[in-house]
């Protein structure tokens, strides 16, 4: 069941990102603000570096909501290509139809 584990890990990352987002933004504002003194900006950057890895939004990955697969995700549906096909054929996706011409 390793796929499920990765989804759980991703859920945890998402909640940590949400919890620290406001503070991180404040530090980012100070660190990237060229009108402030370099010392203050450097301090803010050092503070940013102390945040754990999972607080960065870039660590969050959109995985398949059905199977947990990490690759081949269709972002509009949040499904991997295979689950997308299965659901589309069961006509569970509104407006999706098998092509035929």
């Amino acid at each position: 069941m390793h796929i499920r584990t990765r989804v759980l890990r991703d859920i945890k990352r998402r909640s940590t990102v949400q919890a620290t987002e406001v503070v991180r933004r404040a530090y980012l504002y100070v660190a990237r603000n060229q009108t402030l003194s370099p010392q203050i900006r450097h301090q803010a950057q050092l503070q940013l570096n102390t945040f754990p890895k999972d607080t960065r939004p870039a660590t969050v990955k959109n995985r398949c909501t059905e199977s947990g697969r990490g690759r081949g995700i269709m972002s509009e549906f949040g499904l991997c290509r295979f689950q997308f096909r299965l659901k589309a054929r069961r006509s569970e996706l509104a407006g999706v139809q098998k092509a035929s011409w």
Partner: peptide
């Protein structure tokens, strides 16, 4: 660069 974009952007969490 005033860093305003970090305050202006919506929260993604």
């Amino acid at each position: 660069r005033t860093g305003a974009k970090y305050l202006r952007a919506r929260l993604r969490g």
